[in-house]
C-alpha cells in the first residue's frame, strides 16, 4: 500500500459501518507502551463494534489493527479505502 492514512476518512468509514463511540488519542514518545517500544508518535482509535473492542494504531509508516476475528471483515474495507494514494 502506498501513500498516507487519511484519518478523517477512516473515522467516517468507521461511522458508516456502525461505530458510534470512538476514542481518538494522540501520543508523543513516552506516554504509551507502544512508543516506549518503537519511539514513534502514534494516533490510537479505540471503539466497539458489535460488542467487540477494537483498536487501530496509526503511525507514519504503518497501521496496526487489533480486533476480534468476528469483526475483521467489517473493518477491512473502511481501513483500506481511506488510504490516500497518489
Amino acid at each position: 500500500l502506498l501513500g498516507v492514512m487519511n484519518l478523517p476518512h477512516l473515522l467516517s468509514g468507521l461511522t458508516a459501518i456502525g461505530v458510534t463511540n470512538m476514542d481518538v488519542s494522540e501520543s508523543e514518545g513516552k506516554e504509551s507502551k507502544e512508543d516506549k517500544e518503537t519511539g514513534v508518535p502514534e494516533i490510537k482509535v479505540e471503539f466497539e463494534l458489535h460488542g467487540q473492542a477494537a483498536t487501530i494504531i496509526l503511525r507514519e509508516k504503518e497501521t496496526i489493527v487489533k480486533c476480534d476475528d468476528t469483526i475483521r471483515s467489517l473493518l477491512r474495507e473502511p481501513i483500506l479505502k481511506c488510504f490516500q494514494s497518489f
Binding site: L2, E62, T63, I64
Partner: peptide, 19 residues
C-alpha cells in the same frame, strides 16, 4: 522507484483474536 518519487510504503498489520 518509490524512493525516487518520494513515496513511502505503508504497512498495514492486522492482529485478531481467535477465541
Amino acid at each position: 522507484v518509490l524512493e525516487k518519487v518520494g513515496m513511502a510504503n505503508h504497512k498495514v498489520r492486522f492482529e485478531v483474536r481467535k477465541a
